[in-house]
Nucleic acid binder design. Structure first.
Length: 301
DNA sequence: GGAGTTAAGCTACCCCGTTA
DNA sequence: TAACGGGGTAGCTTAACTCC
């Protein structure tokens, strides 16, 4: 395919069609008429030799070819935008930028309060949109710009994404302060005999603890799984369950509740809280500013 | 009724030949 | 070599039509 035959604006139209799934909406977004966008779609179909979008009721669904084209075209356009509009200095004090960040409730508890306080103080017009995004969808959201940054544990990130550890975290046990089985402290026997509460976003009843127990030929009973650690202070004081969670989150709960922290009676590897972003955005000064702040928060956490 | 496609007409731009 | 002018073409709009 000869690049001289390709109108770059068609790629912009393709990007909008992928985003909105509607010729009319894409046209409105780009400030053109709907027939003009329809014409662009016809030319795209000719160019790629594929329908690209097929009508299904009131929406235009992308074909497999269109889906495969989305990320490379989006990346190419992002690089072009950076090349054409070289980034200026990020003026935090006056910027009205909105940062989209994903993370679980652990990041929301441990990192977000510090980030929100810093931003409110140093960048009062900057807005944060913190949301939960399904783990498998995070790379695509970063690629397409729907997310600026993702916070979490990312063991095998795609090479096109950049990763920076923020801090290492160890596990501790959290149970009610007057737990009858823990008056002499946490032992392995008590740990395996107690009912457990597991915090898991995926809903499956296995975790790092089960892996460590399994190496010693032991098991535990997970009596309850919950998707958010924030409910622990409501549940644990009224039950005999024990939860194994990160130290920093436990330290947030224990002082103000009837909960006590115990060491895990098992050798467990610490885990890393990291931030991940698209390498396409490497030169984005606003994102660099945000990453610097998160690095500082990670060091102090 | 809403959304996509097609047709007709208009306009701006590009290409190329001519001229100074 | 640069400027100018004419023809061709691409892309836009509106209007009408089709489809779900």
């Amino acid at each position: 395919m000869d690049l001289r035959q390709i109108d770059l604006n068609l790629m912009v139209a393709f990007e909008a069609l992928m985003e909105f799934g509607s010729v009319s909406e894409a046209a409105r977004h780009l400030g053109m008429s709907q027939p003009a966008m329809s014409s662009n779609l016809a030319r795209l179909r000719l160019l790629f030799g594929d329908d690209l979008f097929v009508r299904s009721g009131r929406v235009m669904l992308p074909t497999r070819r269109a889906t495969a084209l989305q990320i490379p075209i989006s990346q190419a356009l992002a690089q072009l935008r950076v090349a054409i509009n070289p980034p200026a200095l990020f003026e935090a004090s006056t910027s009205r930028r909105v940062f989209n960040i994903s993370g679980g409730d652990y990041a929301a508890m441990v990192i977000l309060p510090h980030l929100a306080a810093y931003v409110a103080r140093e960048a009062p017009c900057v807005d944060l949109r913190f949301r939960f995004v399904e783990r498998g969808a995070i790379p695509e959201w970063l690629d397409t710009g729907r997310l600026d940054l993702a916070l979490g544990v990312f063991p095998n990130p795609p090479k096109r994404l950049a990763l920076k550890p923020l801090f290492e975290e160890n596990f501790v046990c959290l149970a009610r302060r007057d737990h009858p089985a823990l008056q002499d402290g946490m032992t392995l026997a008590a740990f395996t005999a107690m009912p457990h509460l597991l915090v898991t976003e995926r809903g499956d009843a296995t975790g790092a603890v089960d892996e460590a127990l399994g190496k010693r030929g032991l098991t535990r009973r997970i009596a309850l799984t919950v998707p958010h650690a924030l409910v622990l202070p409501s549940i644990l004081p009224r039950s005999d369950m024990v939860a194994t969670i990160g130290t920093r989150a436990a330290n947030l709960f224990a002082p103000s509740t009837a909960l006590a922290i115990h060491q895990v009676p098992l050798a467990m590897h610490p885990w890393r809280m990291s931030m991940m972003w698209s390498r396409q955005q490497a030169s984005d000064v606003g994102l660099r500013w945000l990453r610097d702040i998160l690095s500082q928060i990670g060091k102090a956490a």
